[in-house]
Design a protein around this nucleic acid. Structure first.
Lengths: 220, 220
DNA sequence: GTAGTATTCAACATAATTATTGAATAGTGG
DNA sequence: CCACTATTCAATAATTATGTTGAATACTAC
């Protein structure tokens, strides 16, 4: 096999991964899986696809190495195949935000309706946490929370906010965070909380940035 | 416009970017553009596509916000639209390396034929640079080199290696690096140098990792 | 075993992508 | 202004992706 052929093949392999990402529906599925593992039926409901379609999309994602599956009881549960996939999605969001005017417009339209949804800078959060002025919400999946989180943060994935709203003090501002500045889950959480009448904003960056800035981290 | 619609639209926008990446040929083009700006004809030659095809691929990349173009004299020069695109490509490579067995096989097959192409760890390079035992080659585009590089490194993009081979001392081992562990340009450089009979390896990580490890950096 | 259920498979129609060819455009250089 | 050239546009044919429906699997629970 010639060098040229091998190199072409290599790019085709990378393209295979990109092809798997090249569908709004599949990106939605990935975003939901980033919040925790899900079975086919649940994903079908969340995305509005038929079950068969959902299954087929999941096959594609699996062949591209992006998700893995395992059967537990009656259900097949799907999950992201690894952390590098979260990073890939974040990189995709970053490019979108930076280079597609439409993305910026849509994000604005959807998330920060009118008034101050400016994100909270890490320093500011730090100070207010010390004074006990805010409730910090970690909306990542439980495993990631367990591996390290902002001290005092409550772990509550977006899907659980509705049920567990009463666990959050009523009269304090809430600051939500997830994995990075382009992780949509924090946006979701803020939107959800605001819909319930709570004062909520999101942390400007995510947990990785918090950690790498040398700020305190709590484990387990 | 309902939230659901906006959110769907948002994912469609991200999918647009992924679609632009979802072709081996376009990834090749991006990889070449990562090495510096190029006109359409050059890219057509490098990829083996017809000029019209190349132009169309470039249109797609441009609509997705991944490349930008400007006319200089007779030629239209294309370049990557920003650093976030480099990071996106790196993330894609990382996922490939981690989750697709085929990628790993191909990389092995193409690059480290037979003997020790093990990468050089940063620490080891550091020591050997101090003793003047190695020639360090920075294969990134000139602009990135100017913004900071490993002390004493020679800047030489892959495309220039053939012409400028005489600038590299003959009897020393060469260590090439670029942007990160998944940046293919360092692999290319090593392959090229070895073809010319030089002893070459690549740095395990890339420059960003070198910098963030607190190792010395030279500017200009 | 049998009934029931979650998931996958297969076949189809529709729609989108790809590369090619040849023509059109726009801008340069004399 | 004219000839020339790099690039883009348009039309085509071949390939590939999408979503639907209904059937096939594989497993659970009784």
């Amino acid at each position: 096999m010639s060098n040229k052929t091998v190199k072409t093949d290599l790019f085709e392999q990378f393209a295979r991964i990109a092809k798997a990402l090249a569908s709004g529906k599949r990106l939605q599925i990935l975003e939901f899986l980033a919040q925790g593992e899900r079975n086919v039926e649940t994903l079908a409901q969340l995305t509005g696809l038929s079950i068969a379609s959902t299954s087929q999309h999941l096959q594609q994602l699996r062949q591209a190495g992006l998700v893995s599956a395992s059967k537990e009881g009656l259900y097949v549960f799907y999950r992201l195949a690894g952390d590098s996939i979260v990073r890939l999605l974040a990189a995709l969001h970053a490019v979108g935000q930076e280079h597609l005017a439409e993305v910026d417009k849509l994000v604005r339209l959807y998330y920060d309706s009118k008034d101050g949804l400016e994100p909270v800078p890490a320093k500011e959060l730090m100070q207010r946490v010390k004074k006990g002025l805010v409730t910090v919400l970690d909306v990542r999946p439980a495993e990631e929370y367990a591996a390290g989180h902002i001290p005092g943060a409550i772990n509550m994935p977006v899907s659980e906010i509705r049920k567990r709203l009463n666990e959050i003090p009523k009269e304090q501002e809430i600051v939500a965070y997830c994995r990075g500045p382009y992780c949509l889950m924090a946006f979701e959480a803020v939107a959800e909380l605001r819909k319930k009448g709570r004062a909520a904003r999101r942390l400007e960056d995510g947990f990785p940035e918090w950690r790498s800035a040398g700020l305190p981290v709590e484990i387990a």
